[in-house]
């Protein structure tokens, strides 16, 4: 009888280990998927910038230092790629800081409109401004979805008993994608 109990226990442990591993793997796919959506929207913002800068330049050509600032922030973002599955917290910090700076400098760019009534009335500029605001909003939505998934994943990785399986198979805690509140403030549109 005792012999059977031992086998039974081993069986249960194996079944548990298998199911936990399966859960970890499928959830890590979910997280990567959520991150891909975040990156899509970040890319979308990145792609919008040249058009926006050109439009603003047409009306406010002497705001040169601002254009330089935008271009620099953009190229910094362009060079920072991140591999989400293996990113260290420091890398994530650097990444989100660069994205945050870009958002800040873009809202400064939009504020230029206050000094140029013609720019403010330009339908093309208004549309680009809407696109940018919409993209910032999408980034916020996807970022929240990603962070929610990371929370679930990190629970699985750190809380016993699934944490034992996680450490056996090398699953690690993932970093949240946080942007400081200054940069998070979307450019407000007023009429």
């Amino acid at each position: 009888m005792k012999k059977y109990l031992g086998w039974l226990a081993l069986g249960i442990i194996l079944v548990y280990g298998f199911t936990a591993l399966r859960g970890l793997q499928s959830h890590s796919n979910t997280v990567e998927n959520a991150w891909a959506q975040v990156e899509n929207q970040l890319q979308r913002r990145y792609d919008l910038i040249p058009n926006l800068v050109e439009t603003v330049k047409g009306y406010a050509s002497h705001e040169k230092s601002l254009f330089v600032e935008v271009t620099e922030a953009r190229s910094k973002v362009g060079t920072l790629k991140i591999d989400i599955a293996n990113a260290t917290p420091e890398q994530m910090q650097e990444f989100s800081q660069a994205q945050g700076e870009l958002a800040t400098v873009l809202s400064k760019l939009l504020l230029v409109r206050e000094n140029y009534p013609q720019l403010k009335a330009n339908e093309n500029f208004l549309k680009l401004q809407d696109e940018l605001a919409g993209t910032e909003n999408r980034i916020a939505v996807e970022r929240k979805r990603y962070n929610d998934e990371v929370k679930v994943m990190n629970n699985k990785v750190t809380v016993i008993p699934s944490s034992i399986v996680a450490s056996l198979f090398g699953f690690q805690k993932l970093s949240y994608f946080e942007i400081d509140s200054v940069a998070k403030n979307n450019p407000k549109v007023s009429f």
Partner: peptide, 15 residues
């Protein structure tokens, strides 16, 4: 219905 068009509907039709 991209954001720009949605914005223009708000500006030109609703406001």
């Amino acid at each position: 219905l991209p954001d720009g068009l949605a914005g223009s509907i708000i500006r030109n039709a609703m406001i």
